[in-house]
Design a protein around this nucleic acid. Structure first.
Lengths: 216, 216
DNA sequence: CCTTGCTTGTGAACCCTTTCACAAGAGGGG
DNA sequence: CCCCTCTTGTGAAAGGGTTCACAAGCAAGG
């Protein structure tokens, strides 16, 4: 398979969500322009993104919604359940445990770990917290596909090294640091602090009020 | 001020974190190469990023850590407190309320809103939840700088329209949709579902095991 | 004071992503 | 059956961001 940029994949997620949404309104077909409008992008971008994976549209008509939904789900690998381990049962970890969307999309949180012995043994949202020391063995035995790292920044690299050694090949990191993973391991970051600082930067460096007409 | 790419700003956040970290070890000076290594980027990238804002380094020596920390904090607008409104006191919202890092970095959650009358009046982490109907007036009166949108996808665009109309010019969106904001309003997105789907894509389309030596 | 070694700052080259523009194709109406 | 309109798929152009490569500059040691 040719190389696919991660921005393209991120947009496919959006397209899928919008398509599933309009499908419930019994829309049978949607043009790239319509889809683009609902995803805040351009028609050309939509077509380029989809064309990477095949020819799904019909000229003059647009894209058949139910078929495209099925195709996107297949492309994104959403046809199966992925087994997820959550490392770190702090506030963020606990919030994720209750995030119903995850299970709906096929992500099953299968094991929860924490290094704090006060948390070990307790249950959150029906998930019993296990000790950090069982991490490697449980991950290796449980055929975990994805690890979510929700531990303090200092501990994050260590955790990711351990889960990767235990066979995990996809990691979602919430710690505000750049993690190093070997080639062949997928890594995504969610860095709320950095996003907030980006907003801070934007506010601090905002141009003085443009009294002209606001653009779209 | 010239245009600054948002990837540059995101990296500045990382640099700042690393620099604050090494500063506690009483490191006085750090080269672009060292900083790059700790941020998983390149020396040239570090220098390019910093050069956008001025000349901070000394040739032959590197960057003076305490001074650069101060400069980065100033650039990112972290010298002051930003007033934040949280809209949506669900799981994610509640997790953010307890996120101590926010306050430490100068983000003060000043008001919490929810549309669910069962939540209104209750307190989370010392923040009393107010009714969604007070949103506009409270935001306008409270001189809120940043709105965090942590409501269901269907409600997100409406919320952002309302807070923008009430004068907010920076928004952090957790809903899994692309929001539209007028020019002059900064918008950042945190889309966990999309990140997970990106991992799913990576796993589903992973090359067959490369039995060769793993690259760095 | 001069030489040597190291590091910055930056134009230029490179690469990747997005946008443009248009030929090709589908469908509907007369 | 033909024409007209609409939309896709895609090469080519444009735009941005990253990497390269090197001159300029600072420090330390002899």
């Amino acid at each position: 398979m040719k190389k696919v940029s991660s921005s393209t994949v991120a947009r496919l997620s959006l397209y899928l969500r919008v398509l599933e949404d309009v499908a419930t309104d019994d829309v049978r077909t949607l043009s790239s322009g319509e889809l683009a409008k609902r995803c805040a992008t351009t028609a050309a971008q939509v077509r380029k993104d989809l064309s990477v994976f095949g020819t799904f549209g019909k000229r003059g008509t647009g894209y058949p919604v139910p078929e495209l939904v099925a195709q996107l789900r297949a492309i994104l690998g959403l046809g199966r359940t992925w087994r997820v381990a959550l490392v770190g049962a702090g506030r963020i970890g606990a919030a994720l445990l209750g995030y119903a969307d995850f299970r709906r999309q096929g992500f099953l949180i299968d094991a929860v770990f924490d290094a704090d012995d006060n948390k070990v043994g307790r249950s959150f949202q029906g998930h019993r917290v296990r000790t950090d020391r069982e991490l490697e063995s449980a991950v290796a035995a449980g055929e975990i596909d994805i690890a979510i790292v929700a531990v303090p920044a200092e501990a994050a690299q260590d955790v990711v090294d351990r889960v990767v050694a235990a066979g995990v090949r996809a990691v979602l990191n919430f710690a505000p640091v750049k993690l190093r993973v070997p080639a062949g391991v997928a890594l995504k970051n969610v860095n709320m602090a950095a996003e907030m600082e980006g907003l801070s930067f934007a506010l601090a460096n905002q141009e003085r009020p443009t009294p002209r007409r606001a653009a779209s």
